[in-house]
């Protein structure tokens, strides 16, 4: 299991190297995991993360605020993914090939549920998966997601609504449709 991220504030000041290293320590695991969901392939994700941080290093002086660092990295990541990988994205990786850490603390049925959820997330269209993971994994607000994805806030909220509805429907077919939300929400959009 890889080491946990170091939660310390990004060092301010003129020391570019230290500031950059601090940013890498703090965010590289989140960036890799988001890259994994984005590319659905661990090897491509690793290349993408390296490209992302290379770009970040080169344009590091343009990062004005440490508060914006994470969103800035995720935006670079998405841009690099579009530029370099989207056109020859590999086929969806088989679940058996994916680098999911084994955790002895998990019971077999819990591992099974995690595998099912992993597959369900993979089945979501990217227009729904992307904002959902930015919110849940990245911890971004609706406004930040709108900026990263270059969408308006209402569209983001609609996609988040549909993402969770679809996910629930994949995991438990019919459950989400039994509620009033999805069908009624379609009329609003």
């Amino acid at each position: 299991m890889s080491e946990p991220p170091v939660n310390r504030p990004i060092i301010l000041g003129n020391n570019r190297k230290k500031r950059y290293e601090s940013l890498v320590d703090r965010f590289y695991q989140d960036v890799f995991r988001y890259a994994y969901w984005l590319t659905r392939n661990p090897s491509v994700a690793e290349d993408l993360v390296q490209e992302t941080f290379l770009r970040a290093w080169r344009s590091f002086d343009s990062l004005q605020s440490d508060d914006a660092a994470k969103a800035w990295l995720f935006t670079i990541l998405r841009r690099e993914n579009a530029r370099m990988y989207e056109r020859y994205r590999p086929e969806l990786v088989d679940i058996d090939d994916v680098s999911i850490q084994e955790d002895d603390r998990n019971e077999p049925d819990q591992r099974q549920k995690m595998t099912e959820l992993h597959n369900a997330i993979m089945q979501l269209e990217s227009e729904y998966r992307d904002p959902l993971l930015l919110q849940v994994v990245g911890g971004f607000s609706g406004k930040e997601i709108a900026e990263i994805l270059d969408l308006n806030n209402n569209t983001v909220m609609t996609r988040l609504f549909r993402a969770r509805s679809k996910l629930r429907d994949i995991l438990d077919p019919g459950a989400a449709r039994d509620e009033t939300g999805d069908e009624a929400h379609e009329e609003l959009c």
Binding site: F32, R33, K113, M114, V136, V137
Partner: peptide, 26 residues
């Protein structure tokens, strides 16, 4: 609970061991 599970699944995606070293700057 669904959000919690998504975070859990994500945390179990293994980050390559040498990735941090590869990202080292100067």
């Amino acid at each position: 609970q669904l959000d919690h599970s998504i975070r859990l699944v994500t945390q179990h995606i293994e980050v390559p061991n040498r990735l941090r070293q590869k990202l080292a700057a100067p």
